[in-house]
Structures are given as C-alpha cells and as structure tokens.
Amino acid sequence: MVDVAFAVLAVITVISAILALEAKEVVYGAIALALSFVGIAGFFALLDAVFLAMFQLTVYVGAIAVLILFTVMLVRREQWLKAKEGVHRAAGVLVAIVVALGLGYLVYASTIATVIPSVEQAPFTLIGAQILTEYWLAFITLALVLASAVIGAVVLAKLERD
C-alpha cells in the first residue's frame, strides 16, 4: 500500500523538521532544516512536479538555507539559554497534537481518498504561460515585493560605520 520511496522521504522530512527545532546547536538545526527542504523537493518529484522540485531545491536549499546559515553564523553566542520551558513545552506539544488530530480527522472523514490512475500531468511550460497571462498582476506585485524586501533587508542589516 505504501511505496518505499514515499515512506523513506516521509520519515526523513518529519525527523529533520523535528531535529531542526530540537537540536542543541542552532547550526545543526539549520542544516536539518535544509535536509527537510530536500525531503519536500523529493515529495514534489514523486508527485510528478519535477520542475517545481528543482525550483524548490534552487530557491529553498540554494538560497534560503544559505541565508539562514549566514545569519546563524553571525548570531552565535557562547552560552545558550537553558530550556526551562517545562510548562510551555507540554502546552506546545498538546496544541500540536490537537491541531494534528483535528486536521487529520478532517482529512480522513472527507471523501478525498481517490487514487488517480496515471493521468498525464500537464507540461510545466504551461506554468510560465499562466503566470504571464492569467496571473500577471500577481507576478508584477511579486517582483515589487522581492525588490522591496531586498532593499529593506539591506537597510536593516547595514552596519553603520562612523
């Protein structure tokens, strides 16, 4: 019932996500986060979205994970905050379990259990056509958002040298 590749990818992604939050050093957490991004790209490839998988690898792993690693290097401290979060951690786990069970029940009780017998996925060239014709406004707005984010990040992180 369950594919081997799917099971392995699921285990890798979930465990890396947990490690990203729970590892003692933040650098290990950042590298575990990059690994979970790779796992998600693997899922995209399993879902016949190879273009999107490569896009995810290039942007998330090649850019965002590198950015996070840069910042983690610069924000290092010698001693770390001891985790005195006993009550908070139990509450957090409880909230997470409630969310998971609630959403899981929604998924399970709905009628979305269909299996598609290998219908051809649309070619990825349609993505470009769609972005440039149907979603052109979102595309231009995205460009402006990215430009302003870059300018804002540079302004915020600039060292004031007197």
Binding site: V14, A96, V107, I112, T114
Partner: peptide, 17 residues
C-alpha cells in the same frame, strides 16, 4: 500511486510540528 490521504497526512504532521 499513493492514495492522496498519505500526502495530506504528511502535510498535517509537518504543520503540527
């Protein structure tokens, strides 16, 4: 192919994390 619910379960677990 996998049933759709498997992917949705993985997505739900990641969301909870």
């Amino acid at each position: 192919m996998e049933p759709l619910v498997n992917y949705l379960f993985v997505s739900v677990v990641l969301f909870a994390i």
